[in-house]
Amino acid sequence: MVPLDGQLRATWMLLEGALHIPQGRVLLSWTPAGEGRMDVTARLGLAGGEVLLAVWPGLCGEWSDVVRPTVAEVTELHAALRLATVVLDRLTD
C-alpha cells in the first residue's frame, strides 16, 4: 500500500533468472529510450502469476509522478479485493 505521504516504497533487486513477483506487489522496470527518456513497465503479482499492468513509453525527467497514481490505485484495489475475499470466505464457511 502507498503510505499517506504519497511516497512509494521500493526494493531494489537484480533481474537474474526467474523472478517471482509477490502477490499484490508491483514490479517496475525501466530501460533507456534515448535522449534522456525511459520506457517504464509495471507488472502486478497475482496468485496465478504476473500480469502486465501498464507501459509508459518515452518518459523524460522525473517520471515517478506519472507512475505513482497507477501503482497506488492498483495496490490499494488489490488490498481491498483480498480483504473482501477473506470476508466472503469466512461468511460462507
Rank of each mutant, 00 (worst) to 15 (best):
M1F: 06
L4S: 13
D5T: 07
L8P: 08
A10G: 12
T11M: 06
T11C: 02
W12E: 15
M13R: 12
M13F: 06
L15R: 15
L15K: 12
E16K: 12
L19P: 00
L19K: 08
H20I: 11
I21G: 07
Q23W: 02
Q23G: 00
G24Y: 08
G24P: 08
R25A: 11
V26R: 07
S29R: 14
S29N: 11
S29D: 08
S29T: 15
W30R: 04
P32I: 00
A33D: 13
A33Q: 11
A33P: 01
G36R: 09
G36N: 07
D39C: 02
V40M: 05
V40W: 02
T41C: 11
A42F: 06
R43W: 07
A47D: 06
A47M: 02
G48M: 06
G48N: 08
E50T: 13
L52N: 14
L53W: 01
L53Q: 08
V55C: 04
V55F: 01
L59S: 01
L59P: 00
C60A: 15
G61V: 06
G61I: 03
E62N: 08
S64W: 15
S64Q: 12
D65E: 09
V66I: 12
R68Y: 00
P69A: 04
T70W: 06
V71C: 04
E73W: 09
V74R: 10
E76H: 12
H78P: 00
H78Q: 07
H78V: 13
A79C: 09
A79R: 09
L83G: 03
A84C: 05
A84H: 03
T85M: 06
D89Q: 14
L91Q: 14
D93R: 15
